[in-house]
């Protein structure tokens, strides 16, 4: 009898927490989002039909060309955790900046110099019913013709939100490249690590892709996903990351195939580590409640001749509403 009471209490608490649509308790035990293997399968199926229809290589969703002769620039953000219309100040500022609109002391300057692409490294929303808000606020990027890419975070997937994610982004496991005017090109790979694992099939996919692409003369390889690899500070306890076996396997893989940068979110604090010649870069959160310490990152990659190492500048910018300051990291 006493045991039944405990079980009822436990179930009641689970329902209560899940009912607030912030904390997906059921997700701790599997939840209602499709398993990572199912998501991988669905992504690859979409890739196949999309690539066949557009005459693209397997799992490639875009071939971009740098807009500028000397360099290209990508804007990165992660962990926005959008929670309704009132929580989009950082996102709006970020979108404006990506489109070349700067606001200084209340005066807006439109340079008309948009960036080459925008990448969101997961957790774009916080919980249910926020996808429409996010999509509405990034619409100016779409209208301006700025390519936008995304990789799913755990908050984008819990409560069974994979359906909403995939309706808009179509795939979570893909690659694209950017070609400079002199023909040198850089590779960008996205994987779904929302479950804090790539899973067996996606891991094999990544391994095969890197093996194939590392022979094609790419100047730089950038890998982006949501989950961070290392946690060296104790600033916050956010986020489960990979099991240790997967960390060793992935770091070995990235080193072996000369991946230059692993860029991610998940941990809300910026961190940069070089391990086995690969830079592991955690952007940090760009959520409204992080006034003054919300961050986004700009990546500027300069042109060089041939396969020589080209300078890559990663700049971390701190944001405080519409007035922001930045520093070079």
């Amino acid at each position: 009898m006493k045991k039944n009471r405990y079980i009822t209490l436990l179930l009641g608490l689970m329902i209560a927490f899940s009912g607030c649509e912030r904390l997906d308790i059921a997700g701790i035990f599997g939840g209602c989002t499709p398993h990572h293997e199912a998501r991988y399968k669905q992504s690859i199926a979409w890739n196949e039909s999309y690539c066949a229809a557009n005459g693209l290589e397997e799992d490639c969703i875009a071939h971009l060309k740098a807009r500028n002769n000397a360099y290209y620039e990508i804007y990165w953000a992660a962990d926005l955790h959008i929670q309704g219309e009132g929580m989009t100040v950082m996102l709006d500022t970020f979108v404006n900046l990506a489109m070349g609109d700067y606001t200084v002391d209340g005066i807006t300057f439109n340079t008309g110099d948009t960036c080459d692409a925008v990448i969101f490294a997961g957790d774009i929303i916080d919980a249910k019913n926020n996808y429409p808000v996010f999509y509405k606020h990034i619409e100016p990027l779409r209208k301006a013709g700025v390519p936008v890419f995304c990789t799913p975070g755990n908050h984008d997937l819990c409560f069974g939100q994979w359906t909403e994610y995939v309706d808009y982004w179509h795939t979570s496991c893909y690659w694209f490249d950017i070609t400079m005017p002199n023909g040198t090109k850089d590779l960008f790979i996205s994987c779904d690590s929302g479950d804090a694992t790539l899973g067996q099939k996606q891991y094999k996919w990544l391994k095969n892709l890197l093996e194939r692409k590392s022979k094609e003369g790419y100047r730089h390889i950038f890998f982006f996903t949501h989950t961070h690899m290392f946690k060296r500070d104790s600033n916050n306890a956010h986020g489960a990351n990979y099991c240790v076996e997967e960390i060793y396997e992935l770091t070995y893989l990235f080193s072996k195939y000369h991946v230059d940068y692993y860029i991610c979110g998940h941990d809300h604090t910026h961190e940069e580590t070089t391990y086995k010649n690969v830079v592991y870069y955690t952007i940090g959160a760009m959520k409204d409640s992080y006034l003054g310490r919300a961050a986004y990152m700009t990546m500027t990659v300069y042109n060089t001749n041939g396969k020589d190492a080209a300078p890559v500048y990663l700049e971390l910018h701190r944001m405080s509403g519409e007035n922001y300051f930045s520093f070079e990291d």
Partner: peptide, 11 residues
């Protein structure tokens, strides 16, 4: 994997 991510999966 990912229990604390609210999207648990087998590892």
């Amino acid at each position: 994997a990912g229990m604390f991510n609210m999207t648990a999966g087998f590892f």
